[in-house]
Design a binder for these strands. Structure first.
Lengths: 113, 113
DNA sequence: CAAATATACATTAGATTCTTATGTATTGGA
DNA sequence: TCCAATACATAAGAATCTAATGTATATTTG
């Protein structure tokens, strides 16, 4: 099963921040592969969504970058800035809270009316 | 805590379909109030998001409507069509599956690298 | 009883974020 | 040698939401 795209909306930044929290530094392509692998192909990040998102997080001072060359091919590593570490924690716990709310909302039987 | 808007994106239709699955029929304003109440004000649906979404679901044959007058004030009740009942089940189980995936993705320690 | 609040529908401009497509270039394997 | 994988990036258009606005009735409160 590949989730309908609308479901994933709004979760991309949280996913990025979580991976960078656990891995210190990662590059874009690596993130797509890691997510694909961890979710058994259920979530496949597209480049058109990922790169603009990474650029936005960098512009907000949440991520910092280092560019390295692997042979002649460029690779851009992203890391959490100090600010980013806080934002990361906040985003993840906000999402955890949101999931609890949604779990409750979707499990309950509200046959009151 | 009120969730950042991006988190809620993409969950609106699932919420609507779940409420209508449990309640047979509801009207727009009622849906906003019920969600607000059930989530202790954490999720507050806006009319600008809700009504277009209801109209779209109706246009897709997922919801049917009945209009009633309460005094002089109009009230538009929405119900799941037979097709809507299937879509409802699918959406909810897809979301449940998605939540499991996200839970795994956000809880794990991936300090492999 | 007047005014404020709540109920109840709806639309729209603009913002955000995603999809899909396209572009460039290097590297590795069949 | 050619195809797939690696690795970056952008851009047009679609989808969906926010915030504002509009209309009207009903109820509560000072």
């Amino acid at each position: 099963m590949i989730y309908s795209s609308e479901l994933i909306k709004g979760t991309l930044k949280t996913i990025i921040l979580k991976l960078l929290k656990d891995n210190k530094r990662m590059y874009g392509y690596e993130i797509t592969q890691r997510v694909k692998e961890l979710t058994h192909d259920r979530i496949q990040l597209t480049e058109g969504a990922l790169y603009p998102s990474l650029h936005a997080l960098e512009a907000d001072g949440i991520l910092t970058t280092e560019t390295e060359y692997i042979g002649k091919r460029v690779r851009k590593y992203y890391s959490l800035s100090p600010k980013g570490k806080n934002v990361s924690k906040e985003k993840i716990s906000e999402f955890a809270d949101f999931m609890n709310t949604m779990k409750f909302l979707l499990d309950i039987k509200t046959d009151i009316a």
